[in-house]
């Protein structure tokens, strides 16, 4: 029958439209305010309106989310070395980087002239970075991590899009906030490694 396709098509659209109001009626204002309702609205059981009202509400990104990398430094209240970068400038991240967007200048001790395990300069060209996450994955010191901040659009790239050490560093507490489980796992792994090392040293 001609026209049936149109009626069926309009039917599903109307059903979808009406469902939003049915849900609103059933759940009231809580549908938009209560924390757990967001999961329901954006999950498999979603009924009716599926839209995220960005920027008023944003989907929180998962812990493994990858965007531009950042360098982990000690928190400001660290007892021994506040603000000390974890990076030892071993260069593994710049070697694994598939598009080669990481530049590192290794520090040298001014007296002995020997290399020091910390970066003097560290650059990432975010116009080349492909967010693959290899740098974070293969860093043996947990010193480089993928940031979750995706709201970084800008008006100018010539000055703003090569990130330097200052722009790249973020404290450990930030990493703990954006990826609590992973930070905890890494801490346990590091402690186990330290313990094993100490055990070995004793022997």
């Amino acid at each position: 029958m001609y026209g049936l396709g149109i009626i069926k098509g309009l039917g599903i659209t109307i059903k979808h439209f009406a469902n939003t109001y049915v849900e609103d009626f059933k759940q009231g204002i809580k549908r938009y305010t209560a924390e757990d309702r967001f999961t329901a609205r954006q999950g498999l059981e979603a009924q009716g309106l599926f839209t995220v009202q960005y920027p008023e509400e944003k989907i929180a990104v998962p812990e493994r989310f990858r965007y531009i990398p950042f360098l982990v430094v000690n928190d400001d209240d660290h007892p021994d070395a506040p603000g000390q970068p974890w990076c030892t400038s071993c260069g593994i991240c710049s070697k694994v980087c598939p598009p080669q967007c990481i530049w590192i200048v290794r520090s040298t001790d001014p007296e002995t002239g020997r290399p020091k395990p910390e970066p003097q300069e560290f650059y990432i060209d975010i116009d080349i970075c492909m967010n693959c996450g290899y740098c974070a994955e293969f860093c043996p010191f947990d010193a480089i991590k993928m940031d979750h901040d995706y709201e970084i659009s800008s008006y100018d790239r010539t000055s703003a899009h090569i990130y330097d050490l200052q722009k790249l560093t973020k404290p450990l507490s930030y990493w703990r906030t954006i990826a609590p489980t992973r930070a905890e796992e890494e801490r346990t792994a590091r402690e186990a490694k330290e313990a094993a090392k100490a055990e070995k040293a004793k022997k």
Partner: peptide, 10 residues
């Protein structure tokens, strides 16, 4: 300019 590869919808 929107950095990212690819930028997410947000």
């Amino acid at each position: 300019y929107i950095p990212g590869c690819p930028p997410t919808p947000q």
